[in-house]
Design a protein around this nucleic acid. Structure first.
Lengths: 192, 192
DNA sequence: CGAAAATTTGACATGACTCAACTGGAGTGG
DNA sequence: CCACTCCAGTTGAGTCATGTCAAATTTTCG
């Protein structure tokens, strides 16, 4: 099979060879440079879903003080988009940038609908995808309710080891909901 | 139409009269008394989805100190379940109790699958349902990352006015991630 | 009415934040 | 190859929001 996206889909639903061909024909290849801004909160509309082949993106909000808060990271083999904007065609809730040089496949909303009607199994694939994302966020909320910053960091390390030395620590601090200085102290305490 | 569930579905997808009948035939009516425990974290499996006609449920986790943390409230016209357990048949991540006497309709996993195949539009309905729930949780996470407890409370009041004087305040405090004493002080400051 | 539960309030403790200085590594240009 | 700069990360000292513990007050409900 040999394609990251098809392999990802195959984990959830079975497609015939013909359907696989069909699916691939609906996607576009795109590349983004490290630091590139793809979506701007409250300015842009999210026109496509992104499936990451190489690199890593982040989705974040910016508060009144100009501070950025990381909502989601998407390394290779993950989907990312401003889902709200993508489905409603309203302005984005979040901004999105490339943390590294990235290679992706993208699909627009129209093509997506068309693809659903031609390959119905994909509607199921995306339902399950969102369902899993939803469950992950339930648990993330539970982390904010039940855990200290130290525990949240420990869980992050266990859950996303591939992200831990891949980006500046302040991005991980932001994801965890603490200041970089605090994460630095948490890590210092951790070691000894 | 005159049925809460059918009206709720009609907001998202169109069903024929025959399909509506079909859908209703798949659900069971159930009642629960205030305080009843429906699901126990790490003990039970969630065998059904619940659609609330009357009353209100809460979904919560219990930490190592025995403290409960409210993940979700479900008043009338809302769905609730331990989605993770429901879909995977693993043990529940969360517990669930009735905050009031409740009237619901329920559907099991098997019936759900059967219903999807007989009324395909429902797969779409549930995808959109979960999608919206997912977006709500993205924003809730964003609240924990960006906002003070005071701001989170203000947003809660605006977003869920129907819940505000319907349950003990400590349940709302728990949902917001603060102690009841702190919420009390936040409210005191609010007034003046 | 009386008991139990919920909420408020006070005094104090603590975890995380702020501001600021310092360290160390990566990259640049002379 | 060194000096310089820039940026991430660390560390220290003081502050602030929220937690903790305990008592007082109010509300709920049998």
């Amino acid at each position: 099979m040999e394609d990251l996206l098809l392999e990802n889909i195959a984990k959830t639903v079975d497609l015939t060879h013909a359907e696989q061909e069909k699916v691939m024909s609906f996607f576009e290849d795109e590349h983004f440079k490290k630091g590139e801004l793809l979506l701007m909160e409250k300015k842009d509309r999210c026109k496509q879903l992104y499936f990451v082949y190489e690199g890593c993106f982040r989705l974040y909000s910016t508060d009144d003080d100009g501070e950025e808060h990381n909502i989601q990271f998407a390394p290779e083999d993950h989907w990312i988009a401003d889902i709200y904007s993508f489905w409603t065609n309203e302005l984005c809730l979040f901004s999105m940038t490339a943390l590294e040089d990235c290679t992706v496949k993208t699909i627009s909303h129209d093509k997506m609908e068309q693809l659903f009607s031609e390959v119905p199994a994909l509607e199921r694939y995306f339902r399950i995808l969102i369902q899993n994302a939803y469950i992950a966020y339930l648990q993330r909320v539970n982390g904010f309710l039940s855990l200290s910053a130290t525990d949240r960091y420990a869980i992050f390390c266990k859950k996303y080891p591939q992200l831990i030395n891949r980006m500046p620590q302040y991005h991980i601090a932001s994801f965890l909901g603490v200041k970089p200085q605090s994460l630095s102290r948490i890590r210092a305490a951790y070691k000894h």
